[in-house]
Design a binder for these strands. Sequence first.
DNA 1: TTGAAAGCGATACCAC
DNA 2: GTGGTATCGCTTTCAA
Lengths: 362, 362
Amino acid sequence: MNDKPTRSPGIKEIAAALKISIGTVDRALHGRSGVSPKTRAQVLKMAEKLNYQPNMAARSLKLNRRLHIAAYLPLQIASFFAPLRAGISAAGRAAHGLNLDLEFRTYPTLGDGDSELMQIDLDRGYDGVIITPGDPARIDPIIRRLTQQGTAVVCVASDAPRSDRVAAISVDASASGGIAAELLGKTLKERGTVAILTGQLGTQDHAEKLRGFAATLATFAPHLSLLPAIESHEHPEEAYNSTLQLLRRKPHPIGIYVSTANSLPVLRALEERKLLGQVEVITTDLFPELVPFIESGKILATLYQRPFTQGKVAIETLTKYLAEGIRPEPITRLAPHIVLRSNLPLFLNRLVPETENEADDA
Amino acid sequence: MNDKPTRSPGIKEIAAALKISIGTVDRALHGRSGVSPKTRAQVLKMAEKLNYQPNMAARSLKLNRRLHIAAYLPLQIASFFAPLRAGISAAGRAAHGLNLDLEFRTYPTLGDGDSELMQIDLDRGYDGVIITPGDPARIDPIIRRLTQQGTAVVCVASDAPRSDRVAAISVDASASGGIAAELLGKTLKERGTVAILTGQLGTQDHAEKLRGFAATLATFAPHLSLLPAIESHEHPEEAYNSTLQLLRRKPHPIGIYVSTANSLPVLRALEERKLLGQVEVITTDLFPELVPFIESGKILATLYQRPFTQGKVAIETLTKYLAEGIRPEPITRLAPHIVLRSNLPLFLNRLVPETENEADDA
DNA sequence: TTGAAAGCGATACCAC
DNA sequence: GTGGTATCGCTTTCAA
C-alpha cells in the first residue's frame, strides 16, 4: 500500500536477470574460485549495470564478525588518557552494524608495565589492538609478534614507526612546536631568550616538538634565541627546580614553552618568583588546574592535543581496516587546537569525559 | 572449533532466560500494546541485567528503512560548501548497516533560490534534510512545514533558531570573533584602530562574530579601538572599495578582521596601497588563493571553519536521530581551527575535497 | 496476552 | 561449476 521506489538491486536481482543462482553471483562478485570466467564476467557486468550496492546490514548480520579489540593505555596522565579512552568507547558504540567487543587494558604510566602486560596477553588473539608505544625499542618486537599472529595494531598518541603497525594517529608534534614558536614570536617584540621544557628527548614526540620549535623560531622569530632544552622526565619536582634555575639567569627568559602536560610546577615556580604574567608561557594539553591560568591571561595559549578525537580516529581506523580490509593511511596527524582565553569555553566541556558526548569530536 | 566467547545477548537470550517467546520480548522492549505490565517489567529488567544491545544490522535489515535524505546547499562559496558536501558523503558512506539515500540539491548562492527549491521539493517526503539557512525569516516557515510532515531538519553552517529544526551544527561564531580580537591584541602592542569587514549583519553568524570581536577587544585589548563595522554583502567589489576607503583614513587602521570568506579583495586593496604586511590581517576560511598570503606572513592567521567536519557531524547527527529516535543536542558548536604559518601544512590536504579521506575530520 | 513462524539480503556449506 | 538452502537477529503477522 505504500510506494515501491525501485529498491536497490541485490544479488537476487542479478541472479534473476542472468537466470543463475545467487550462490554463483556471490562467488563471482567476491572473486572466489569455482566460477567460470565467462559467468563471472557476466555477473560483474550485470552488477555494474544494475549499480549493485551490497546491503551492509545483511552482510554484517550474516558475518556477524565480533571484533575483539583491546586498548593498552596507561592510567597516567589521566587528563589525557581518560578522554582518549572515552573517544574510543564513544566511536566504538557508534559503529552501527559492527559488533565490537572492546577491552581496556591499563598499566600505571607510559613505559611502565606496558610491554609486560602485552606479553602476557599475546595468546588472547585479539583481532586488533590500540597502543600508545612509550618505548618503541621494547614495544616494536611485540607489535611484530602480534602482526604475525594476525592482530592488527594501531598506535595512538605516539608512534612506533619501525614496527609494522597498520596505522598511527597522533597530533603533529613538529607543528605543535612550530605554533608555540610562532605565537611567542608574534607576542614578544623585543629581543630576548626563550626556553623549552620537555620530557625526554628519547621520545619521538618530544624530540619533534623541540625540532619544530627551534626551526620556526630560527626562521620567523630571529630576535628570540633559544636556551638549551631542559628535560624534566615528567617529574614535577624536576620541572620545578629546573624552572627556578632557569629564572635565576640574568636576564631571565621572556618566554617559556612547556611541551608536555607537566606545566603546573613551572607555573608555580613562575608565581613564586613573581614572574607569572611577565614571562609569556605556552603549555601543552588542557586540564582543570590549567583553566584559571588561561582565563586570567597568565598563559598565552595551551596546545590541546585532542585526546578524545585521537581515540575516536584510532578506533575508526582500526575497525575500518578490520571490516573492509583496505590498509589505511599509515600516519594520521591531527592538528592541535590552539586554546586561547577567548576560545577556552569551547573546550571546557571535554574536561569531563563522563559526558562522552558525540559532539565532543569537535 | 573456535571460541564461543559469551556472545552479546539478543532477544532470544532474554526470552530463554524468562521462558517466554521472542515476540513478547520485542513487544515489551518497544512498549507496544499487548503485553501484561508484569511481563514487560520482567523483560525490561532482564534486558538491563544482560546489558542487551539491539543488533542494528539485523534491525535495519528487517525494517529495511531506506533513509531518504537531502542536503540543500549553495554552490557558492565552493571552497566552503564543496568540502562540506564531501564530509556529508564520507560520513554517509561510512554508516554501516544504515541504508542511506543521499541527495544533493543545489542553488547558486546563499539566500538565492534556496527557499524556492525547498518549496518545490516539499512533497518529496524526505526522512531528513540538511540545510544552510541563509535568510531565517524565509526559511523558518518551510522548516516548520517540513517538520509537520515528519521530515527532520538539521541546520549546518548557520542556524534558524526560531524554527523547529532538530539540531544545528556550526562553528562558534562568537568565539571566532573573540579569537581574532585576542590575536590582534597580542600582536599589536601600540595604540591604534582596527576594523572588521563582515557580510551582512542580518545574518546571525555575521552578527555574532562582530559581537565576539567587539567584546573581546574591549575587555582584553583596550588599546585598540574598533571602527564601525563594514558590510560587504559578500560582493568582492564592495569589499575592495570599502577597504580602499578604510585605508584612506589617517592614521590608517593597524589591524583588519575579515569575518567572511570574502577576503581576497581586501588583500588586493592592501597590496595596492603598499600596506600589506604593515596592517595585521586576520581572515576567515581557507582556500588555495589564501595560502601564499599565509605562507609569506602577510596574514597573521585565518580562522578555518572546518566545513568537512561540519558536514560530517551534521549527517551523523541526523542519521542518529532518524535511526534511534533520540533528540540530539540542539546546538553543536565546533571550535574553529586557528591556521597560522606554522600549522598551515596540516590543513592543505583538505583543500582538495576529492580526497575525501576519513582522516580529514581531524 | 502470548507463541510460532516468515522473511529482510548476504554468506557459506553441501549436494549434484 | 553450479544450484539449493540454512543461517545471522530482529520485526511483524497470524494463530491460539
